[in-house]
Amino acid sequence: MHYLKQIGSYFLMVVEMFRKPTKWSVMRRLILKDIDDLIIGSIGIVSFIAFFVGGVITIQTALNIDNPLIPKSLVGFATRQSIILEFAPTFISIIMAGKVGSFITSSIGTMRVTEQIDALEVMGINSINYLVFPKFIALTLYPFIISIAMFLGIMGGLAACVFGGYSTYEDFITGVQLDFIPFHIVYAFIKTFVFAFILATVPSFHGYFMKGGALEVGQASTTSFVWTSVTIILLNYVLTQILLS
């Protein structure tokens, strides 16, 4: 019953997010700030993780292919498929649930604890629109981060493959270009947009409706990470079933 109530409150919050919009001149500044905090601020860590995990995927694939009948180009092919289909959209989203999600929950939760949200409400401002909508708009640029992750993941794989001596540059590039299906990119970006929505709204929900003090802000951040991850994993399954099966 409690979970049903929570889910209901979440959807009401989502509806409220699109109602009574904040003045555009104010909203523009909020969006730019959130783009800086959520998107620009995540590029570094996402690039670092993507590059090295791309390398690890390549090494593990190469080490598991010891049959001389299997062409060496398969390493590049497997790396590309793993990164584009799962690693970049899903794995990076789980990382973002920790980085961006915790940030959103704790910043909104702190505003709740320090009565800043009450101050907005007293002024007649739709606080949900004011706080959540700019994050949602900022995270529509999330596919940009995922594109970087895809590119750097494959580059990391290429570097690990060539410098580790698992296959040649030419074999890897041949594998990356092998049997390329453009719809896989569409599939990855559809998932990315859905996850961006989850990343903006689920942590906001946990921050906005939290009760208590500083300790509860920390607890809300943890709960938010768990539920954002669970939602992403479940939706990943549902979308894969719908789009690829």
Binding site: K20, K33, T110, T114, E115, Q116, D118, A119, V122, M123, G124
Partner: peptide, 20 residues
Amino acid sequence: KRNMRAKIGMVFQGSALFDS
């Protein structure tokens, strides 16, 4: 209600200043 709220000023116990 929105117009009415614009006529209301509130000083909160913890000041509730926007820290950003």
